[in-house]
Design a protein around this nucleic acid. Structure first.
Lengths: 151, 151
DNA sequence: TAAATGTCTATAGTTTTTATCGTGTATAAA
DNA sequence: TTTATACACGATAAAAACTATAGACATTTA
């Protein structure tokens, strides 16, 4: 399950992306983003700060300040946002490349049957999620419609 | 990330499965399973109880009592175990069939862009994980080896 | 300089995770 | 029938993660 924080982050990014495609895009204040995304303002503040530190959005201070996208939606990877906000996406720490951690009790990683089976799953999962960007969320998503229909 | 509890559950199931294929399988006590799987005994107790209530394992009380697999490894689905121990595996509650919950702030599920993109990912993910069973973990896992090699 | 706005650190309530403990119940052997 | 062994089940609790909120400060522009 993705966290509420991640939902707020994605909603905020969608608000910023929607603004970015307008003829005369303006920087949006935290307050405005909070309102449009229906997120708690003071919480969103922290989220936007993280996105800013990750170079995903830019901010300008003072009067008429606010936030706007820094990267093109097609360059904002969903999996990167997940890693940034929710932490590692690997099912096991010992399968994460960036947040690798050996299991305390692990005697032999190479033969661990739990690791093996989840490596298999994770590999396929990464292939999919690593290919998704904010741009895919902006499109109306015909594929997703079909998927939901099947479920 | 799967929880520590789920790791213990899988380890315990592997211990029970390894016992089940022996020429003269015996019921294993919680203590024995805890030792072989390197899990905290009193915690494992609750996990085994859940597995028992889910008809995955059987238990016999009293002297010479203990636990053993009730289902064949090929019939023990990894994703079902995940659902049992860790809860819903859908990335969003509104995408879970068994633990469906509408988002508090959701105005229109059909057009929610977050839901759509994760539905797409989840659909593919389910396809993979739903096909895996404990039997796949028992096999040495040549496919997984290749996967890990690529990572 | 005043008003608007972002920055940053601290704090705190709630929930989830990860256990542990005590006691009760069932079984089989002595 | 007693006793040893083992599972059953509910209560409790420490630690971590999640979800915020608050206050003080810095920056910009009118």
């Amino acid at each position: 399950m993705i966290t509420q924080k991640m939902k707020y982050a994605l909603k905020a990014l969608l608000v910023l992306a929607d603004e970015a495609v307008k003829p005369a895009p303006e920087a949006l204040t935290i307050e405005a983003i909070a309102k449009r995304s229906d997120s708690p303002k003071r919480f969103l503040e922290h989220i936007l700060l993280e996105l800013r530190n990750a170079q995903v959005v830019t901010s300008t201070r003072g009067r008429a300040g606010g936030y706007s996208l820094r990267m093109a939606p097609a360059d904002i990877s969903i999996s990167e946002m997940l890693r940034l906000i929710d932490g590692p996406i690997a099912p096991l720490a010992c399968l994460s490349r960036r947040a690798y951690q050996r299991c305390d009790d692990c005697t032999d990683e190479a033969t661990c049957r739990i690791r093996k089976v989840f490596a298999e799953v994770f590999w396929s999962y990464l292939l999919i999620i690593d290919s998704l960007t904010l741009a895919d969320m902006l499109r109306s998503g015909e594929v997703a419609d079909q998927v939901i229909g099947k479920m």
